Amino acid sequence: MPSDSLTLFATDLFVPRYRPMRSGDWELRCGANVLCPGYWGDVSLVLDIAALTRGHETWMSMTPMEIESQEIGCRLARGYTVVMGMGMGWAAANAALMPEVSRVTVVEYDPDVLAFHAECDVFAQLPPEAAAKVEIMQGDALHWLPDAPVDTLLADIWLPLNGDDRVDEVRRMQANTGADHVYFWGQEMVIARRARALGGALDADTVAAIVRELELPLLGPSLPDYPNRIARAAAAHLRD
């Protein structure tokens, strides 16, 4: 299929510039043009993709799937925002760009990831007023405690999109931080799996009931098309 018949992926969110580098077992790879499915969007062509890998596993990449699966949290973040898991720094950078966000703390456990970011310095690519909001802390996401009340918690510390222990771990992070609002990677898969178990339609009422059951102040359910987004994401990515 000729490339001019493909849809190029585009987003109005900030996508940092990356360059190839290594830090311990981690490698940042750049340069391939790849056809990628979205999280809830269609397949599109990504030019000069960047990906963070360890061994044979890709932990994060600038693909439509990765961007769409985190953008709700970035767009709806407000106040003091804590990002659990550095990854490629994309979510923290975009949260810092939101006018409603006053401060961003990134909590990362792995010293090699921290060393990678010290060299890559994604946040230096931000406007000075956004970069000044960001601080990076080394710590365990399941035990880290803030020094001030947290408004928004964004959590992405997992490799598989689907995970059985995810909700319990997010509850621990939310309890430790006292965050008023939470968005965690893969929450749509959690909701879709529960809806399937209940045998109900994936509509606004079902989503609201499941969110109450999760006992987490989730970002996303207030969006009018959220049930439809969940359904599209689940059709593409829910495997169990």
Rank of each mutant, 00 (worst) to 15 (best):
T105G: 06
T105R: 04
P99I: 04
D112L: 06
V104H: 03
F116C: 08
S102Q: 10
P128I: 15
L126C: 03
Y109G: 00
E119Y: 10
F116H: 09
Q125R: 06
A118W: 15
A115M: 12
E100N: 08
V104Q: 10
V101I: 04
R103I: 09
V101K: 02
E108D: 07
F116N: 01
P127D: 11
A115V: 06
H117T: 01
S102N: 09
L114Q: 06
C120R: 14
Y109K: 13
E119V: 14
V104A: 00
V107I: 11
V104G: 08
A124E: 12
E119R: 14
S102F: 06
A124T: 14
V101F: 01
A124Q: 13
L114A: 00
L126A: 04
M98R: 10
H117K: 04
A115L: 09
V107S: 01
V122R: 12
V104N: 01
A118E: 15
A124I: 05
D110L: 02
E119S: 11
P111I: 02
V106P: 00
F116P: 00
Y109Q: 14
D121L: 13
C120H: 10
P128S: 14
M98I: 04
F116R: 07
Q125L: 10
P99S: 04
Y109N: 13
T105I: 14
P111W: 01
E100G: 01
P127M: 10
D121G: 11
M98P: 00
E119D: 14
D121K: 15
L126S: 07
Y109D: 03
M98E: 15
V106R: 01
L126Q: 07
V106Q: 06
L126P: 06
V107F: 01
V122Y: 02
P99L: 07
D121S: 10
P127W: 11
R103Y: 14
Q125P: 09
L114E: 00
E119A: 14
P128D: 12
D110T: 05
P127K: 08
Y109C: 09
V122M: 02
F123E: 02
M98V: 12
E100H: 05
A124L: 13
P127V: 02
V104T: 11
L126T: 08
F123V: 05
V107N: 05
Q125V: 01
E100P: 03
P99D: 07
P99Q: 05
F123Y: 13
A124P: 02
E108Q: 01
P128W: 11
V104W: 03
L126W: 08
L114Y: 06
V104E: 02
V104D: 08
D121Y: 13
D110M: 06
D121Q: 07
M98Q: 14
C120F: 13
R103D: 08
E119T: 15
Q125T: 05
A124R: 11
V107E: 04
F123L: 07
L126E: 06
Y109P: 01
Y109M: 11
E100D: 07
P99C: 07
S102V: 08
S102R: 13
